[in-house]
Design a protein around this nucleic acid. Sequence first.
DNA 1: CCACAGGACGGCT
DNA 2: AGCCGTCCTGTG
Length: 292
Amino acid sequence: MNKWIMKKNNIIINNIEHFDPVHTFECGQCFRWERIDDSHWFGVVKGLALDLEWNGKDLILHNTTEDDFLKVWYSYFDLGRDYGDIKNRLSKNDPVMREAIGFGYGIRLLKQDFQETLISFLISQNNGIPRIKKIVESMAKSYGDPIECSRPGVHAFPSCERLSKLALEDFRVIRAGYRDKYIHRVTRQVCSGEVSLDTIMKGSIKEARLEMQKFFGVGQKVADCTLLFSGTRYDIFPVDRWVRRVMAELYLGYEADNEEINSFAMKKFGELAGFAQQYLFYYAREKKIGMY
DNA sequence: CCACAGGACGGCT
DNA sequence: AGCCGTCCTGTG
């Protein structure tokens, strides 16, 4: 549990542990944080804009309110979770995990908006991070509500309700390519109740993953990423090419298919699978594990 | 010009 | 049930 104080319009968390904005914002889970300089970041989350400062030990959330902190930022940054305990449990008898955690020690799983996460990871398929960010930004600029903040031209990520009213052609401007038809239909599937968000939130893991894949354009990978990065489920292990590489290289010794990797990871990491995935993914990508 | 990028669909066997 | 060509767009 982290202690925090309010000073003027800033929330300050002194000596925050298990956090580094580079690790957390650049581990591939989010697309709307911009690095200003070594200690300053700007992000747009759930209709709010935030100037974030991190000096190497203290986290400062500028120009916010206690209300927004308690309603949004506290859960978004997962401040109630004991990452020390998670790291200990994952590291136990696992030198690979210990190494990965030592490398990405400042990763936190952000609790992001479900709809935004769903659309963002729909866009992510067959795409690299710079382009994903560009498309998401374009989506906000074109159809999201403007936000008054320290910078001009900032927009919230548009709701599915708003997006569902658009025609397919309206998505051409965001340059999402063939994914525009997925976005078009998925936003309608969310609003119509064709896919049960209740099952996704409260069903068993198996039911939730199955229900997610009723969304047009959502396969297992996008389903799992959405569940994990929206903080809906943590006992989940998204498998993509980086995870496939790191598992082959550091655990299995051979190239296994997604299903085998998934069941191996679930058995090994259990309810902490989601955290394990992030440490491994970040480690693999930054170190380019298995690329040569 | 071609390969590939943090996949998924749809038509084929 | 599994395989595989194809899908927009940008970058190298």
